[in-house]
Design a protein around this nucleic acid. Structure first.
Lengths: 110, 110
DNA sequence: ATCGCATATCGTCGATATACGATAAGTCCC
DNA sequence: GGGACTTATCGTATATCGACGATATGCGAT
């Protein structure tokens, strides 16, 4: 790791969030959590074509990125999205894309 | 690649796009390209704290994800965002986040 | 206390990502 | 053609990812 800083905290943070989302299994999990009114416990494993331990790792990745919260609920664990974190990511992404469409029609070059 | 399918093409495609964006250097590059009316040639390397070959690899990653176009322009190469591809990614991300805010106030559990 | 279930963690493996320097490939100018 | 410049690619080293099975942990029921 050759001097990992050199980029802004903001960019590193956004990159981490994007990395957390950048996997089909984790996208599926996020969608699953988003489309529920209730928190989801065990069903996540059943809905993915992956081993239980693998799903647990993906959930851990999402938790570490702060996008998902998990609370122990009896003998199982209950997951739901962190709405604020997700909103923050959406904000950051929107910010990224903002300048875009002003300069879109400049196809004089490429 | 242990049976990579099992997820939808859509999700794999979105995951690839997110992965392409999920690095501070590539975020920086995208922002750089977004904030320009003109295409950018050599200056990208100067604006990043990375070796020229590394930057070239990041640009290649963005090109392979279809987010960036590069055309040889004289003795240098000219890069710009692909507005349609970026718009498509934004669409896909918005779709991901859409269901979110209806079910946000369900914090009865987590 | 013990059994059974749900989840987490560990250890491991192959694949991929990230970085660099060195070198190739292309273009312009002389 | 020969040099100077810009970008791409190669080779390589290290780190991280993604998957799995095996095992640990925690809880509820018996």
């Amino acid at each position: 790791m050759p001097v990992t800083s050199a980029f802004s905290d903001t960019d590193r943070h956004l990159a981490d969030a994007l990395k957390a989302l950048a996997h089909p299994a984790r996208l599926t999990i996020v969608r699953l959590l988003a489309n529920r009114d209730e928190c989801v416990c065990g069903e996540i494993v059943d809905d993915l074509p992956l081993a239980q331990s693998t799903v647990s790792q993906h959930l851990k990745a999402l938790k570490e990125a702060g996008l998902v919260r998990g609370t122990v609920e009896g003998r199982s664990t209950c997951y739901c999205l962190d709405p604020e974190a997700m909103a923050a990511v959406k904000e950051a992404i929107d910010g990224l894309f903002d300048g875009l469409f002003l300069s879109a029609p400049n196809d004089n070059c490429c």
